[in-house]
């Protein structure tokens, strides 16, 4: 089965600045794909090339197994980072208009819009003008506008920013459901906890280049289990053990990063000898740590 999106050695520069350099990625049907990277890394540029808003200088973009064409756009739902709705249009009119542009009939679009508004608990907003709504509500409208035509490829730039936790979970669950129905979902974010929880595969971009990509499990397995959380009662003399690269000491527990290829079991034995261990947790680094480690802590740009 061909990938829904395939970008093959794609490059794009503006002025002298290279926005994207030699980037390749694949998004499979029925998967959730996280596009990560610090601000200005090239996430939005990548997405825009994917859906033909801009064209790559070199490389190849394939959508649904075919070279990019405008016709493919009716199977794509795109929610840009900077939300855009007509401020003076009423919610239902707006949703119907956007639905019709993607090929739905007006009654069909209207019916779906009402169903979605009910589902996302904003039915009371349906006859209001967009500019009268709160930001969170506008975002839900935007979300519905993106999904109304049941796209097979859903692209969301920072979908959860500006949402309260209750609504963020509501949208998250909706996305998971859509993924389970076989759609592909790409979202870009720098919220690593969400990516870790939701994504099947990721691509980490830094300064226009893919620095890390692959399936979530596979990516994480590339990293050694070198994180130790140790809870203890007694002295902390074991902190001089040669396996420890650095540690942070808290009340009752320490967080330790081990040196490469260090012997964690030996550390446990040493610690057990001088204090009572209530917890010893050896884990691979979190995605956030991988992110910071990979981009070298530079998140400015």
């Amino acid at each position: 089965m061909p990938a829904l999106v395939e970008m093959d050695h794609v490059s794009k520069s503006y002025e002298e600045k290279a926005a994207v350099r030699d980037l390749s990625l694949r998004i499979e049907a029925g998967s959730m794909f996280g596009l990560l990277g610090p601000n200005g890394a090239g996430k939005t540029s990548t997405i825009r090339m994917m859906i033909g808003i801009t064209r790559p200088d070199s490389g190849r973009v394939t959508l649904f197994g075919e070279p990019f064409s405008n016709a493919a756009l009716s199977r794509v739902g795109y929610m840009p980072e900077e939300r855009g709705l007509y401020r003076r249009m009423k919610v239902l009119e707006q949703l119907v208009f956007l639905g019709e542009l993607r090929g739905l009939s007006a009654p069909d679009a209207s019916r779906r819009a009402r169903t979605w508004c009910e589902r996302l608990q904003i039915s009371e907003a349906i006859d209001k003008k967009t500019e009268e709504l709160s930001k969170g509500m506008q975002q839900k409208i935007q979300f519905i506008a993106t999904l109304l035509h049941e796209p097979q490829l859903i692209i969301m730039d920072e979908p959860f920013s500006g949402l309260d936790p209750v609504n963020a979970v509501l949208l998250q669950d909706t996305l998971i459901e859509l993924r389970n129905q076989g759609n592909a979902i790409l979202f870009s974010t720098h919220r690593m906890d969400q990516v870790e929880k939701l994504c099947d595969s990721i691509c980490l971009i830094n300064r226009g280049e893919a620095v890390l990509s692959g399936g979530m499990r596979e990516v994480k397995s590339r990293y050694e289990r070198n994180r130790v959380v140790l809870q203890f009662e007694g002295t902390n003399g074991f902190l001089h053990h040669p396996a420890i690269a650095e540690y942070k000491s808290y009340a009752g527990h320490v967080e330790i990063r081990l040196k490469p290829h260090a012997d964690a079991q030996d550390l446990l034995r040493t610690a057990a000898a001088c204090s009572t261990i209530t917890r010893f947790d050896l884990a691979e680094p979190s995605l956030e740590e991988i992110f910071i480690q990979t981009v070298g802590g530079r998140t400015d740009a």
Binding site: I53, L73, M79, G84, L85, Y86, L101
Partner: peptide, 14 residues
């Protein structure tokens, strides 16, 4: 359309 950024949504359709 530019200031409300609707046009990025529109350009992803037509």
């Amino acid at each position: 359309e530019k200031t409300s950024r609707v046009f990025e949504v529109l350009l992803s359709m037509v």
